[in-house]
Deep mutational scan, measured.
Amino acid sequence: HTCEKCSTSIANQAVRIQEGRYRHPGCYTCADCGLNLKMRGHFWVGDELYCEKHAR
């Protein structure tokens, strides 16, 4: 898989955010504040991922 955020190959663990879309665990972050979304879930606003606070 290729990380959709940093565009590099994912060798080990990948986070599947949608069918066919993956990120490194470290790239699974809010587009606004950079908070890691692991164990928090994500919210779509347009084509970007946000934490609950910044999705509003």
Rank of each mutant, 00 (worst) to 15 (best):
C51S: 02
K53Q: 12
Y22F: 13
E4R: 02
C6A: 04
C30S: 00
R16C: 15
E52S: 05
Y22G: 04
Y22R: 05
G34R: 10
Y28S: 08
L35Q: 12
D47F: 05
L37V: 09
Q13H: 01
F43H: 15
L35H: 11
F43L: 10
K53N: 10
D32L: 09
Y28K: 04
E4F: 13
M39H: 09
C30Y: 00
E19M: 08
V45C: 06
A31I: 03
C51G: 01
G20V: 04
N36L: 08
Q18M: 06
G26E: 15
I17E: 05
L49G: 06
Y28P: 01
N12F: 03
N12C: 09
T8I: 04
T2A: 02
R56Y: 14
C6K: 06
A31C: 08
E48S: 10
L37E: 04
S7P: 02
Q18F: 05
S7M: 10
C3P: 00
M39A: 15
A55K: 05
Y50Q: 06
K5F: 03
C3R: 00
H24N: 05
G46H: 06
C33Q: 00
K53R: 09
L35K: 10
H54M: 00
I10T: 08
A31F: 12
K53H: 15
A11Y: 02
R16L: 14
H42I: 06
D47L: 11
R40V: 13
A11F: 00
C3M: 00
E52A: 08
R21C: 10
H1R: 07
E4N: 14
T29D: 15
T29L: 09
Y28I: 03
K38S: 13
C27G: 03
D47C: 11
A14W: 08
C51L: 00
K53Y: 15
G46R: 11
G20Y: 08
T29P: 01
S7G: 12
W44L: 13
G41P: 11
T2F: 06
A11Q: 06
T2I: 14
A31P: 06
A14I: 10
V15E: 15
E19A: 08
C33P: 01
R56G: 13
Q13D: 15
K5V: 13
R21G: 06
L35P: 03
G34A: 10
H24K: 07
S9P: 04
G26A: 12
H24A: 05
H24P: 02
T8D: 15
S9G: 10
E48I: 08
H24R: 04
R16I: 14
N36E: 13
V15G: 05
I17G: 06
C30E: 00
N12M: 09
G26W: 13
A55T: 11
C3W: 00
G46W: 04
C6L: 02
E52T: 03
N12S: 11
R40E: 13
I17R: 02
T29C: 07
E48L: 10
V15P: 02
A14L: 07
K53F: 10
E48Y: 07
W44Y: 14
I10Y: 01
Y50A: 07
H54Y: 06
Y28F: 04
P25D: 15
R16Q: 15
E52N: 14
S7Q: 11
E19Y: 02
A11I: 00
C51T: 00
E48F: 10
H1D: 05
G46S: 10
E52P: 14
V45S: 09
E52L: 08
G20M: 08
N36M: 10
T8F: 09
G41F: 06
G41D: 10
V45F: 15
C51A: 02
A55Y: 13
T29M: 05
R23N: 08
L37H: 01
K38V: 03
T8K: 15
H54N: 03
V45H: 15
C27E: 09
V15A: 02
Y50D: 10
H24M: 03
D47R: 12
Y22C: 05
G46L: 09
T29G: 07
G20F: 13
